[in-house]
Simulated assay, not measured.
Amino acid sequence: MQRFILRQNIHLYEAKLSTVPTEGERTILEAMLAASREELVFLEQLWRLLWPELDARPSFVSQIEDILDRAVAAHGADFGSCQIWNDVDGSLALFAQCNFDRQYATKFAHIRDGDGTSCEAAIKGLKAVCIEDLEHDNDYPNLHGWARDRDIRSITSIPIMSPAGKGIGVYSLHYRNPHALSSVECLLISAYRPQFAAVFEGILGR
């Protein structure tokens, strides 16, 4: 949604500029347009800063964003994120997100060993990690303050694995209310995880 809103704002500002506004209006619109474009580039291409050597064509990025958006909707989640595993420095780099803002993208751009997040635990254990209610969680204290600030109560992180069983990424679903994985959602994970994996395999050249 955040990406969608920014794109809509850009189209709106461009349309208004084409109507030849007054000089004062033009200055304001140009500033708003530049800010929206800069924010969109940051949200969509942060991975270029985190892992500049990674060769990800625009089509790959669009595919991951589309899969993530569909997974968030199918699970009834409020937010989503997807990270790719960087073998070079042993970290998870944020590749796509759904409904988060720049502050989130900055804070969780790079997940390293010892950061104490559910996505770190998922890539290490190669199994889904579900925090049903962060208000009653004792295992991930590093997430509590951040989640409370964004009214997030539950997070599920799912490892993305290659056909050989190697962890190549993680996607996470975030909920505003306490949430436990149902049997139906486990089937959804089985459907979406290989879709993420197929694109990441193409990006990583495997």
Rank of each mutant, 00 (worst) to 15 (best):
W47M: 03
T27N: 06
D87I: 12
S91T: 15
V72W: 04
G90D: 05
W51D: 10
D78C: 07
G80T: 15
A164D: 14
R150G: 09
I158T: 10
A121I: 05
E23T: 13
G145V: 12
R148N: 08
G205H: 03
W85Y: 15
E25A: 02
G169V: 00
D151L: 10
M161P: 02
W51I: 11
G205E: 07
L204C: 05
S157Q: 03
D87F: 13
V129F: 08
S118K: 10
R37F: 01
E23I: 09
E185M: 04
H75N: 09
G24P: 02
I203T: 06
F42L: 01
A198F: 11
Q97S: 13
L12A: 06
R102T: 15
Q97I: 13
T156W: 08
L46F: 07
G125F: 05
G202T: 05
T19M: 03
V20E: 13
P163G: 01
P58E: 04
S81A: 15
V184T: 11
P159Q: 02
H136S: 12
G202P: 04
R148Q: 12
E14V: 01
L33K: 00
G76A: 09
E30R: 01
T27H: 11
L173Y: 05
R70A: 10
F196L: 00
A56N: 01
M161H: 01
K166C: 07
L29G: 01
H110W: 13
A96D: 04
I131T: 06
V199C: 06
W85A: 09
L181P: 08
C186R: 15
A34Q: 08
R57K: 14
R7T: 01
P178F: 10
D87A: 11
S36C: 02
A15L: 05
E44D: 06
S62Y: 09
L12S: 08
C82M: 09
E38N: 12
S91K: 14
I28T: 02
I123D: 03
I111F: 07
S62G: 13
I158C: 05
K16Y: 05
H136L: 14
A164L: 14
G202S: 08
A122L: 05
A198D: 15
P52F: 01
A122E: 05
N99V: 09
H11T: 02
S162D: 06
L134V: 15
L181Q: 11
L204F: 00
R57A: 13
A109P: 05
N86L: 04
Q45T: 11
E39S: 02
C186N: 14
S59L: 09
L33R: 00
R153V: 06
A73K: 14
I111H: 10
S18L: 07
H75Y: 12
I189Y: 00
G116R: 12
P52Q: 01
I131M: 07
S118V: 13
F95K: 08
T117R: 10
L68I: 08
S157M: 02
I111G: 11
G116E: 07
E53M: 15
N86H: 02
H136T: 15
C98S: 13
H179C: 10
A164F: 11
D69W: 07
S91D: 07
G145C: 10
C98I: 14
